[in-house]
Design a binder for these strands. Structure first.
Length: 455
RNA sequence: GCGAUCGUAGCUCAGUUGGUUAGAGCGCCGGUUUGUGGUACCGGAGGUCGGGGGUUCGAGACCCCUCGAUCGCCCCA
């Protein structure tokens, strides 16, 4: 144990139910993304460091301390992607995706952040991501949020609410920030140490501080509403009324902010309701899906001004909350009872599988132990397969179904098997043989000739 | 980066105020039995107690360091 290598800190190996839940999230995302006609995009897992440095801004701790950056052999500084947005923006610019604008893009995959691991937070983690690039209209925000909302519903995630705010346009935002700084400076000594520092670095963040000393000084006179320009207000009204029309429930969250400068207008997070089961499962890492409008980003990457809005969500966190897929599919486990029956077993498996039925084939497992193995693998029906030395073309099958709990053995003939699962290719039962061998096996099947032709 | 709790078999854990050859359940392997099967019974393998150092006649238990996990804070693109 001590000698064998360990997985590196903050990474995880996913298997079993967790892996199924993970796959369920991705599959559901893929399905919903098609419903909303978002197009798939794939970007490299690493980029030049400047892609992230320029988009996020050199100043923050993020760039200096929380990215996996390294030099390649050519001496170029590269970084494992810590987020999707910057890479997508870079791809948009370098591939001339303007020609498709406005373009709706969706992607998912691993991301890397050098952070202290905690619940639902890893150094290699995975997100799903959706962006609409080249659309300045509030309807784009609505479209994007409607998709997110439907996704969460289809994942069976309950007790989660869309928290919504606006950061205004550039002008509104600057005025708001100035007013906040002025207000908090006047009570600086009463703020928490962290917030006194935030006053310099990131004053907006004081609004969502958890420290009671800070909360005392946050009130509604500081909401951005009083600083919004007419056009920014109109934009936000369009978003909220659009959400209402689209059936997306939301609530206003005046203290919801974004630290980075490129964010404009809409900012949002889906957060578990207080006291809900979901909140319990997530602990302090509570946001399950978040995003906003980032009209300023393309310019910081040296592109033409391009409006865009997007969101991302952690797959691990979604998987923790998602309901079980609950798809009970008839699943077969085939057990050849002796080596001579293996070809018959292979063919049986082939026929079932080509009819779309899931089949697990067990070899190297004693027939006696098989049920236990199969139970672990969530098999619903076991097919014990055997054949006779004097009639290698024939085989017989014992059919045991829903074996959990009961000890009963259901016996059916091959035609029933075929009917029940509507197989295109069937097993034909020879009456004589069936009778002849009834003592030994309950059904005897002779393989029919209409085997699929192999090309 | 800061704080707290934890780390004993593949898994879940027990291990009394430091005291002989470190235990259980499940799992795994083998055997017997139930004629068709998940059962039961018998047997077996598997641990330098996360790693390193120290205190002690003696350490899985105590101290220090380190690695990792978990939960908060910071950060959150």
């Amino acid at each position: 144990m001590s000698k064998s290598p360990q997985a590196i800190r903050g990474t995880q190996d996913i298997f079993g139910p967790d892996a199924e839940a993970f796959a369920f999230v991705v599959e559901t995302f893929e399905r919903v993304r098609r419903l909303y006609r978002f197009r798939r995009a794939e970007m490299p897992v690493f980029e030049k460091t400047e892609v992230f440095a320029r988009s996020i801004g050199e100043t923050t701790d993020i760039v200096s301390k929380e990215m996996y950056s390294f030099e390649d052999r050519g001496g170029e500084s590269l970084t494992l992607r810590p987020e999707f947005t910057a890479g997508i923006a870079r791809a948009f610019l370098s591939n001339g995706w303007q020609q498709h604008a406005p373009v709706k893009l969706a992607t998912h995959g691993p991301l890397f952040r050098y952070e202290r691991p905690q619940k639902g937070r890893y150094r290699q983690f995975h997100q799903i991501d959706a962006e609409i690039i080249g659309a300045a209209e509030p309807q784009a925000d609505v479209e994007l949020l409607a998709m997110a909302d439907q996704l969460l519903k289809e994942l069976g995630i309950e007790g989660v609410t869309l928290h919504l705010n606006t950061l205004g346009d550039g002008e509104s935002r600057d005025a708001w920030r100035a007013a906040l700084v002025e207000h908090f400076l006047s009570v600086k000594d009463e703020l928490s140490e962290d917030s006194q520092e935030r006053l310099e670095k990131n004053p907006l963040r004081i609004l969502d501080s958890k420290d009671p000393r800070d909360k005392k000084h946050v009130n509604h006179t500081l909401d951005i509403d009083t600083f919004l320009s007419d056009s920014a207000r109109r934009f936000f009204d369009e978003v909220t009324s659009g959400l209402d029309a689209a059936g997306v429930k939301w609530q206003r969250a005046p203290n919801l902010v974004r630290g980075l400068d490129y964010y404009r207008h809409t900012a949002f997070e889906f957060i578990p309701d207080e006291g809900s089961e979901a909140a319990d499962k997530l602990g302090s890492q509570s946001t399950i899906l978040g995003g906003g409008r980032y009209d300023g980003l393309m310019e910081s990457l040296g592109g033409a001004p391009t409006p865009a809005v997007g969101w991302a969500a952690g797959i691990e966190r979604l998987a923790m909350l998602a309901g079980s897929p609950n798809r009970r599919v008839e699943t077969f486990g085939i057990v050849p009872e002796r080596p001579e029956a293996s070809h018959f077993a292979q063919e049986l498996a082939y026929i079932l599988r080509s009819n779309g039925l899931p089949v697990d084939m067990l070899f190297n497992v004693s027939a006696r132990k098989a049920p236990k193995k199969l139970y672990d693998r969530e098999i619903t029906t076991i097919l014990y397969v055997n054949n006779f030395d004097d009639a290698p073309q024939s085989g017989f099958i014992n059919f045991k179904r829903n074996f959990s709990g009961s000890h009963s053995l259901e016996k059916r003939v091959g035609m029933r098997l075929a009917e029940e699962f509507r197989l295109e290719r069937t097993f034909d039962v020879s009456e004589e043989e069936a009778v002849l061998n009834r003592e030994r096996a309950d059904l005897v099947l002779r393989r029919r000739v209409d085997k699929p032709t192999k090309s």
